[in-house]
Every structure is written in structure tokens, then in C-alpha cells.
Design a protein around this nucleic acid. Structure first.
Length: 661
RNA sequence: GCGCUUGUAGCUCAAUUGGAUAGAGCACUGGUCUUCGAAACCAGGGGUUGUAGGUUCGAGUCCUACCAGGCGCGCCA
């Protein structure tokens, strides 16, 4: 049972006669135990609405409220808060129910299941995945698991970039530097080599002919801007003075940024020029940038050779990507990338045009949106399609094939304007199509992963940190910690093999948990030390908590299955036991909260709190040496349900537990 | 210039979407192991929620202005 949902429904009934049924959501868990377990705050707004004293309303509500089976008599406090304390005997019964509920642990399924398409991860294939892909992948996967567990139909779709310039690079690389023998032997390695090599060639030329000159120009312009600002006469009034000073400061800051950008670019150029092999090849491929684009364009135009190469290379690229997903223990129902939609793009434009949504501006086909300065460009001047076009076609495809109620995109916050445009265009496009019109479209936005210096997490040379190496390092550090702790024991617990397994789970878990525990909308600082700490709100602590609970069953020598089905009497006579039991019943509330605003950090907070309550219980209440057999059994039952709740909760977050660590 | 977003304890972050005295974890100070994993527990100090106004029974949360950062703004994805 979901206690909160049940109480809200009881309140909804009581509120009806007062014309306040919409206020039942104002029943909430109490912040402070002295106000009971739950509190209803609806009397205050209702009092205002009806022009009557809130306490009077509260009294009336309490009289109408039927909760005698669940709660002690409600108390009215302060301006009109109604405080509810769940009957301890009822908590005990409900724990008993959860205990025998093998898979769901007492969590009811959603009363109105929805059909939800979840779009997340979406890397470019052929390019190695990097730190920027973590959040989308991890948050998306956790949301998928939680929504599924709550009984929604979830379709996950990895909208990979498999049709872009990176394939032009590989094709060009294969045609000019390819090695068929290596390709046959180790396709992933060879394709990665080709991508990296061509990319560095393109980059080298871009640095010389474009990036560095542009950076120099930017410095000149910025320099001028600074000079102009500093030569302007000082304004009379103070406000204008401050504003001018601020502008100057900002311009100078920008100038500094430009300068350090140039230094970084020049350093990259020097590095490249020290690579003799690269330079000699680069000279023979001076127009490589254009050639790569030409190969990409040929692919898009259906050039037989390039399409054949694309088909030949794609499986290896996917395999490389899947290797990472396997390490992360993430999978998708569908992987329909950009290439899947390329033959639907022309008809997408035609359909938009048919509805009179398209205007040609500067030669490009645009959808102009109310309240937006910039148009949504759906076809370029040269006739090529864009990201926007593919996204529209994708929405149409998903709607036609999967009939979703909601379409969720787990994508970083920088694309919020794109999604605003995309969603607005979709609604216009769907004016006559109720499937589109009623669709919930949501951008599940998240912040940037920062380094410990507070800047976007990059390697020293300024490139994105590879995901694979990131996982390696976390696991390696976890192994060191696990080994050190185990060596410190009088008798080490773990074999070398077991240590490695534990380190894998702790390392991967640490990265995932650190990400999920933060409110996704804010940026967060990536720190191995913090995420791998054995204390505090970390995966390692949660996994430790689980291992500690679990170890008790071996010592007790009980059959857990039998313990559950023997219908034990749950005894909650101490505050620690009661508090733990109530927390166990609130698992479903935490999950509902995650689903309501698509934020997994509600679940991490819940699990951490549960673990803390278990710790208090464990230090205050002897389990194996309880005063009586009945009490021992009751406490073992609490341990069992705690272990299962922790494990299931972590599982929904994509984190595996270990029995010993 | 316009738009979005963030600002909470020394540090990293919460705050159930407008609820009661703003909470955790690190770090710091004290206490608790001849009993189940002390990787723990208990207690304590630490705050003008960026600033100034406003809305109301009640504001970290909503509105206005300002300050400071991040991101974005027509043919990349």
C-alpha cells in the first residue's frame, strides 16, 4: 500500500463536501516527527476560499475524515495543520504484507498506466563515448527502470547519430589509409584508428586555416572593443558609471578568454607539427575537410560505394558502443538512429508545407514560431536536412508505431531552445492529429559535468574525457579501497577474484550513484574521491549497508524464504523499530516522486535515509540476541525487508549490490 | 542586445513544488566496541537561503529590480 496515496484519497472524500477536492495533494509526509507521520495542510487555503477560520475547517475535516483504521485520532495544530500518526499496529501489518510480496515489496502499480517513450544516451557511433554521455545514459536508464516498476509501459529508444560527418571521416579514412587485413582482424580497433587519424588531420588543417586565424581576429576585435569602452567618457550618474565599469570588466574578461583560447589552439598546432607522420600525410590531404563532407554528402545521396561501406562498418561501431553499455549494464528496446529516418525527411517537409507552416527565408525552409526570434529551420538553403528535420520525423514515427502518451528526452540543458522549438512545431503540426496534439513532450534536462576546478570536465589537453577510461579508473580506485579495507581485517574476507567483482560493482555504482544523487537540473562536480567515499551518501556506503544487513542471515542460520512466509508478528515497540518500519513502507512514495518529476535523486535520498534508519535500529536493537524468539524473528523480518528494499532500489538505479565487501 | 538557467553552512549537495524551528554528508569537537560488519551509532558547534523590495495566515520556493556565474540565440548535432 502507498500510505500517502491512501491518505490523500481519504482526504479527497472528506474534502468533497467542502468543495476542496483539489486540495488533497496538500497531504504530505511530515518534516518533523513531532508533527506525526503525515500532515494535511489543506485547511488554510480552504479557510481562505470559504472565508472561515482555518482551525474551524480543520475540525470539520477531521470529523468527516475516515481514517480510524489507519491512524490515531488526528490532531490540529498551529493555524490549522492536521497531524496524522499512523497506528503502529497498522504499520506492523503492512510490513507483514510487504514481507510476503516477493517482487514488489508492497509497492502498488500505477492506477493509470501510461505508455512512455524514453529517448536517452544517443551517442554518435564511430566516435568514442565520453564523459558527456554519462548523465543522459544513467538518468535515462534509472527513469526507465523506475517507470517500468511502477507499471507503466516504457519503450526505450537510443537515437544514435549514425548518419553524420563521422562516417564521412571513416569512409575517407578507409579509402585513403584503410587496411583490409586489420579491418578483418579487429574491425573496432581499425575503425577507431581511422576515425581518430582523419579527425586529427581535419583538425590540423582547421587549426591552421580557420581556427587560429579566427581566434586572432577575435582577439583583435575584442581588443578594439575594450579600447573603445575604456576611451568612452565617464558618465555622470552613478548607475551608468557602474554599468559602464561592468561592461568594461566583462569585455576584458572576454579578451582574456580569447587569448587563452588562442594559446591552447597554438599549443595544439605545435603538438600536431611535432608529429612528423601526421604532417607529411597532412600535406598530401590539404582539402581533407571538404573531401570528408563530400563523402558524407555522397552517402546521403545514396552513392552505392559509400552506402555499402556504411553498411559494412556500422556493425563494428555498434559493437564498440554495446561494449560500453554492457559495462554499464544498460540496454535499450530500440536503437533507431538518424539513418533510420533519412528516407522520411522529404515527406516530413512536405507534410509541414501542406499545413502551411513553412516559410522560405534566405533560401532556407523555416517554421516561424510565436514569441520566438529565431525560426526553426527544417531544410537548409542547399537542400540538406537537419537535426530538426530528423527529430520531427522521429516524433511522427514513434507516434505512429508506438502510440505513446508521453515522449521524454533526456538531453543536456544546452539544447532547451531546440526542444522548445521542436515541441512548439510539433503542436502546430499536430493541430489536426490528436495523437500529436495530446502527446506529452518533455525535455528532461540536466546540467554539465564539471571538473574539480568548476569548469567542464576535460582532459589536460582540453579534449573530452573518454567514458571507457573513466570507468577503468573508478574500478581501479575501488579495487584499491576494497583491498586495503579487506587487508586491514584480522582475517581477510575476500578472494582476489571476489575483490575484482566487488570493485567492478562499486566503481560503476559510484559513478552512477553520484550522478543520480544530484538534482539533475544543476551542474555537478565529478570527483572520484567523493563518489568513492565509504561514508556519506554514496554508492559504496549503500552497498556496504546492504552487505552488512545481509551478513546477519548467515549468522542467524535462518531460511529467509520461510521467514517471509511464516507470517511473523512484527513487533515495533521501540522508536527505532517503528521508524525503520515506516520508512520501509514509504518505498513506493519515493518511487512515485521520482516518476512525478523525473528525478532519480528522490530515490537516492530515500535509500540513504532508509540505510541511516537501519543503522540506528541496528545499534539500538539486538537482533540475534533479542530477548525472545518472537522479537528475534520480528527483527530478522525487518532486516530481510530492509535488505530487499535497498537491493531493489539500487537495482532500479542500475546499481548492483554485493553480499560481502 | 535578447532568452534560458544557477546562486542555500568552510566544502559537496537536499529541501516532497507555498507549509511549522531551512536539512544531510564531508570536515571540526566530544562521547560509545571483552555482543550481530565501529566502513557504524549518539551528541554538539556552524545560516541574514546573492542583495533590496513586494505578494499572504506562511516565501529558499511566487512577482519586480539589481549583483555574480553558466548556457544558448538562422541553415552543427
Amino acid at each position: 500500500m502507498n500510505l500517502l496515496a491512501e491518505l490523500r484519497s481519504r482526504f479527497a472524500t472528506a474534502l468533497e463536501s467542502l468543495d476542496g477536492a483539489d486540495l488533497s495533494d496538500m497531504v504530505l509526509p511530515s518534516q518533523d516527527p513531532k508533527f506525526g507521520d503525515y500532515q494535511a495542510n489543506c485547511a488554510m487555503p480552504l479557510g481562505k476560499r470559504l472565508g472561515r477560520p482555518p482551525r474551524e475547517i480543520a475540525t470539520e475535516l477531521v470529523e468527516k475524515l475516515g481514517v480510524a483504521d489507519l491512524c490515531e485520532p488526528p490532531e490540529i495544530a498551529g493555524p490549522g495543520f492536521i497531524n496524522l500518526r499512523v497506528k503502529t499496529a497498522r504499520i506492523a501489518e503492512l510490513v507483514g504484507d510487504a514481507l510476503v510480496d516477493e517482487h514488489r515489496l508492497g509497492v502498488p502499480t500505477a492506477t493509470e498506466p501510461r505508455n512512455i517513450v524514453l529517448d536517452y544516451s544517443s551517442p554518435n557511433v564511430a566516435k568514442p563515448m565520453h564523459v558527456g554521455h554519462i548523465r543522459s545514459t544513467v538518468i535515462g536508464d534509472a527513469l526507465a527502470q523506475v517507470l517500468k516498476f511502477l507499471g507503466h509501459k516504457v519503450i526505450t529508444d537510443n537515437h544514435i547519430g549514425d548518419w553524420g560527418t563521422q562516417f564521412g571521416m571513416i569512409v575517407y579514412g578507409y579509402k585513403n589509409f584503410g587496411d583490409d587485413a586489420k579491418l578483418a582482424e579487429a574491425p573496432v580497433g581499425e575503425l577507431t584508428r581511422l576515425y581518430r587519424f582523419v579527425n586529427s588531420l581535419v583538425d590540423y588543417h582547421a587549426l591552421r586555416t580557420k581556427k587560429i586565424p579566427e581566434a586572432e581576429l577575435a582577439i583583435d576585435q575584442q581588443q578594439l572593443a575594450v579600447e573603445k569602452l575604456s576611451s568612452e567618457p565617464v558618465p555622470e550618474d552613478q548607475k551608468a558609471q557602474k554599468k559602464a565599469a561592468k561592461k568594461l570588466r566583462q569585455a576584458e574578461g572576454l579578451l582574456n578568454d580569447c587569448r587563452s583560447d588562442l594559446v591552447a589552439l597554438q599549443q595544439k598546432l605545435v603538438d600536431a607539427e611535432n608529429d612528423e607522420q601526421l604532417i607529411s600525410v597532412a600535406k598530401e590531404h590539404a582539402d581533407i575537410g571538404q573531401k570528408v563532407l563530400a563523402e558524407t554528402a555522397a552517402l546521403h545521396a545514396g552513392d552505392e560505394e559509400n552506402v555499402a561501406l556504411w553498411k559494412r562498418f556500422l556493425p563494428a561501431c555498434l559493437a564498440e558502443m554495446d561494449a560500453i553499455y554492457e559495462r554499464l549494464n544498460v540496454s535499450f528496446d530500440h536503437t533507431l538512429g538518424e539513418s533510420h529516418y533519412h528516407d522520411q525527411l522529404a515527406e516530413t517537409i512536405a507534410s509541414l508545407e501542406e499545413q502551411g507552416l513553412v516559410k522560405v527565408s534566405d533560401g532556407a525552409k523555416c517554421v516561424f514560431l510565436e514569441g520566438q526570434d529565431a525560426p526553426f529551420i527544417v531544410q537548409k538553403r542547399d537542400g540538406a536536412f537537419l537535426y530538426a528535420t530528423t527529430d520531427l520525423a522521429t516524433i511522427k514515427y514513434r507516434v505512429e508505431n508506438w502510440q505513446p502518451d508521453a515522449l521524454l528526452y533526456v538531453v543536456d540543458h544546452r539544447q532547451s531552445l531546440h526542444f522548445e522549438h521542436l515541441f512548439a512545431t510539433t503542436k502546430l503540426w499536430g493541430e489536426k492529429d490528436t495523437r500529436l496534439k495530446d502527446l506529452e513532450l518533455e525535455h528532461i534536462s540536466f546540467g554539465t559535468v564539471l571538473g574539480e576546478d568548476g569548469k567542464p570536465y576535460k582532459t589536460r589537453s582540453g579534449t573530452a574525457v573518454g567514458l571507457s577510461g573513466l570507468l577503468d579508473e573508478a574500478i581501479q580506485r575501488a579495487l584499491a579501497i576494497v583491498s586495503e579495507n579487506d587487508d586491514a581485517r584480522a582475517e581477510p574476507l575476500l578472494s582476489a577474484e571476489e575483490r575484482q567483482t566487488v570493485a567492478d560493482r562499486i566503481g560503476i555504482g559510484a559513478i552512477k550513484y553520484a550522478d543520480l544523487a544530484h538534482n539533475r537540473t544543476s551542474d555537478y562536480v565529478f570527483s572520484y574521491d567523493k563518489m568513492l567515499a565509504m561514508t556519506g551518501n554514496t554508492a559504496a556506503y549503500m552497498q556496504y549497508s546492504y552487505a552488512r544487513v545481509s551478513s546477519i542471515f548467515g549468522k542467524a542460520g535462518v531460511d529467509r524464504q520461510q521467514l517471509r512466509t511464516s507470517n511473523p508478528t512484527i513487533d515495533l515497540n521501540t522508536p527505532a523499530e517503528r521508524s525503520l518500519a515506516l520508512a520501509l513502507l514509504q518505498f513506493s512514495e519515493a518511487l512515485t516522486r521520482v516518476a512525478s518529476d523525473y528525478r532519480p535523486n528522490h530515490l537516492t535520498s530515500y535509500l540513504f535515509e532508509l540505510a541511516s534508519k537501519y543503522s540506528s535500529f541496528f545499534s539500538e536493537c539486538p537482533v540475534l540476541k533479542a530477548e525472545s524468539d518472537e522479537l528475534r524473528t520480528s527483527r530478522l523480518a525487518l532486516c530481510d525487508l530492509t535488505a530487499r528494499t535497498l537491493s531493489r532500489g539500487l537495482e532500479l538505479l542500475g546499481i548492483e549490490v554485493v553480499e560481502r565487501m
